[in-house]
Design a protein around this nucleic acid. Structure first.
Lengths: 253, 253
DNA sequence: GACTGTTTCCGAATAGATCGGAAATTACAA
DNA sequence: TTGTAATTTCCGATCTATTCGGAAACAGTC
């Protein structure tokens, strides 16, 4: 038989089960079998194999995603050079500003909060390390988009679209491109109410020989970011941080 | 043919590839094929299927683990009730003591640092969120072991053994059991130089109707933990934290 | 203690993973 | 730039390993 998508069904199903285990926060063969429209015994075979790996745990009859995901995620961060040099700086700025300081990267066309340091009165709801959002819906994402090659930007837009998050989200391609050009002119990005109403952020890209490795951002309540003077102060701190990190990043190599 | 271990080879191999991608920090079909002793084309089939999932990214010819692991890990934390109630308390204690405050859980017989809050002068090297270590090699792990059902403890020892980490690590089953009994008597665990030389910790279990959900710990340099008075102070803070969290945990249900 | 629902186990049938080989692409040197 | 080598990607027939019915063990309920 000819293959439609040359994708191994076994793998496809295995990861579908992971997804379901995640969504349901643990489940047994029958429940999964119903959702996937497969015999119980087949799902059982999968679960058995999966719990041989470190990724799935069996606890008296029901199966769960194990905390190995946390472990891998943690190690990914800690062996990452950018994280290593950025962390102390982020901690410092978080302490100085008392706000929420984040390091965002791009992966597969979406923005992922790679690390976060919270100042004492930091806005706590909303983002957290690992949080994934469309790139065009927040300053940190746009700061990255602005410095990605043009064809890559088109690719991402084609694949992901321009989903609307709040009524401030940019959903028009041309308007987005204009804003990206503007970001390149300024060297920074600022937004409010685009990702979450009531929340705003300022962001600068992290550039190493013309490559965007990610972006730094500071998250603050919309009101505060609209204060021109405060915004400038935050941007100054971000730029200062970016410079230090860029130097340290290259220094160690 | 009869099956030896009724484990689906496809799944086994898929996760072996994930592991290799992790170790090698990205690789192509040929390299993986050599290591796994499989034809390139087979490995290619796997990589293709894996990069259809969110877990693997393809970046011009080489394949990487994607940051989806970070995302899942982050979400696991943030939807966990214990984490939700513990976090603010941990942050408070970290600020008060200036040390490193951790929340550890047990998963598949090993200790996993679930969350961590760093005080200003916190010991930074050593542990980090997601870090996984044998339960018997540190106070937070033993605080959990002490309150696990006896048969579960035996099971874990049988499966994982008592690996030696430093020359202070307990490697004898009877001595471990004695210490666990002692921990139950005291209601807390303290150690130094068992996991990492130069590092010590104090820990209390988190108990909700006779079930250990995990343990709180404070990591400090060996010297400081040996100061009897300081140790008592830390333990008082830990116990106070445990009480608050236990109450808040049940309150919301 | 019987009934209902779920998990676990087995083994034969056959869907689908596998792998040789070839084409396409990339990397590197000269 | 052109040629050579190394890798990635693609295809399709073969036969292995997944699949699934059915049955046994187990758990929960009234």
């Amino acid at each position: 038989m000819t293959r439609e998508t040359s994708s191994l069904t076994t793998i496809h199903r295995a990861f579908e089960i992971l997804e379901l285990l995640w969504e349901l926060d643990g489940a047994g063969p029958t429940e999964l079998a119903n959702r996937m429209d497969l015999p119980d015994s087949t799902v059982y075979d999968y679960l058995r194999s999966l719990s041989d790996t470190k990724y799935v745990t069996r606890e008296n009859g029901t199966y769960f995603l194990s905390s190995y995901f946390l472990t891998i995620g943690g190690k990914m961060k800690h062996r990452n050079r950018l994280f290593q040099v950025a962390k102390p700086e982020m901690k410092r700025i978080a302490a100085e500003t008392n706000e929420l300081v984040g390091l965002t990267i791009e992966n597969d066309g979406i923005a992922v909060v790679f690390h976060q340091e919270e100042g004492k009165q930091a806005l706590s709801l909303g983002t957290h390390p690992g949080a994934a959002t469309p790139l065009h819906t927040l300053a940190t994402g746009k700061a990255i988009l602005a410095y990605l090659p043009d064809e890559r930007v088109d690719e991402i837009i084609a694949e992901r679209g321009l989903e609307q998050r709040t009524d401030h989200t940019i959903t028009d391609v041309d308007r987005l491109k204009d804003e990206l050009a503007e970001i390149r002119d300024n060297g920074y990005a600022v937004d409010w109410n685009e990702q979450v109403t009531g929340m705003g952020m300022a962001s600068v890209p992290i550039l190493i020989d013309d490559q965007v490795l990610g972006s730094f951002g500071i998250v603050v309540p919309t009101g505060r970011i609209q204060d021109e003077q405060y915004q400038q102060e935050l941007l100054r701190k971000l730029q200062e941080m970016e410079e230090t990190v860029t130097i340290n990043y290259q220094f160690g190599e």
